[in-house]
């Protein structure tokens, strides 16, 4: 009995996951709500991946959308050429029905390539710190977006499409809301893995770097390797979120991964508070819902949201949660929540 209570939190996440899937498969939730849920999932991955670097490690990376773009393009090109008839390779390279199994693999490959692109930021970060590193990340974002803009193979600035056909190919095998399933799965896995990582002895190294880099080095933390791991981990997860984002929308163009997208991630992380994973998740949910609610205001939306955030900063200068997690606010939650 005790064991069940301790794991109640995890069980309830699982139950929620199954309920949403069943409702979506039965057609009770319409496509709009499903899309919003998927955007929430994508934003959770995007925000919590940035919170590794900006929150836990205390660096200021503001070009996160660049890695999202890498993941989005790599996984889209892969899935379109592998599973559908397309302009690049003609007939599909693999039987389309395999897409059911290989879809997560394709997304993961996108993440891995994005992690390698993360080296672009990780290697300069050995020598440079705070604001100089911020500049490098902005420059990397610009570089990646212009690079894609100039690649005629993937459509240049016109964008790249055809991912919907992959989803249809998957649905032809067994009708099931695959993309919803994978977005939610990846979101839950991401939060779980990041939580395990930053609370492990090894992962505490990045928190040590945030507090004091020189002291961390003296305490025998290999700061360069820690930074490499953190940047690659974070950009890899951003790549995964990009791949999912591309497949949810079914169309990508370089313009949607501009600095503005990076700003969205920054908003989510700092609204949550630096170094609060639960906060990132909550603020990703709030932010996505806010965006949808404010849709009728059109352009004024982007005046209202920054205003709200500035107001929030005035009243809670450390963000919604600061560096605390939910159980720190509601100690009774600890009973239902065993999570090392």
């Amino acid at each position: 009995m005790d064991k069940i209570r301790q794991n109640l939190f995890i069980y309830s996440v699982g139950v929620l996951f199954i309920i949403i899937l069943v409702l979506a498969a039965a057609g009770v939730i319409d496509l709009y709500i499903q899309t919003v849920i998927m955007f929430i999932g994508v934003n959770i991955i995007f925000a919590s991946s940035l919170s590794i670097v900006n929150g836990y490690m205390g660096e200021f990376s503001c070009g996160h959308a660049g890695f999202m773009a890498v993941g989005a393009y790599v996984s889209s090109v892969l899935s379109v050429t592998l599973f559908t008839a397309n302009k690049l390779t003609g007939a599909p390279l693999l039987p389309p029905s395999l897409s059911v199994v290989l879809f997560p693999v394709v997304i993961l490959i996108g993440g891995i390539v994005a992690a390698i692109a993360g080296l672009l930021v990780a290697v300069p970060s050995f020598k440079t710190r705070d604001d100089y590193l911020a500049i490098i990340t902005i420059a990397v974002n610009f570089i990646i977006v212009t690079l894609i803009n100039n690649m005629a193979v993937v459509g240049g600035s016109r964008g790249f499409m055809g991912m919907k056909k992959v989803l249809y190919a998957m649905k032809d095998v067994v009708p099931f809301p695959y993309i919803l399933f994978w977005v939610m799965t990846f979101a839950i896995l991401t939060v779980f893995i990041i939580r395990r990582f930053v609370s492990s002895v090894y992962g505490k190294g990045i928190i040590a770097i945030k507090q004091d880099e020189v002291a961390a080095e003296i305490m025998s933390i290999n700061t360069n390797r820690m930074k490499l791991v953190a940047f690659m981990f974070s950009s890899g997860l951003a790549g995964i979120s990009g791949g999912l984002f591309a497949h949810v929308i079914g169309y990508v163009n370089p313009g949607s991964f501009s600095i503005l997208k990076s700003t969205e991630a920054l908003v989510m992380v700092y609204m949550a508070g630096m170094g609060s994973l639960g906060g990132s998740v909550i603020s990703a949910i709030l932010f996505t819902i806010l965006l949808e609610l404010l849709r009728p205001f059109q352009i004024l939306k982007w005046v209202i949201i920054p205003l709200l955030l500035i107001l929030l900063m005035q009243f809670r200068p450390e963000g919604l949660m600061g560096d605390k997690e939910l159980p720190d606010f509601f100690p009774k939650l600890k009973k239902y929540y065993k999570f090392k």
Binding site: W302, L309, M313
Partner: peptide, 30 residues
Amino acid sequence: RPLREKGAHRLYVVITALMVGLILENGNLA
């Protein structure tokens, strides 16, 4: 200034600056 006086983390002031920029741009657009 209010943020500075409250002793907020430096990066929160930077984010506020980013938000002010967004307000100016989109307010102008509106």
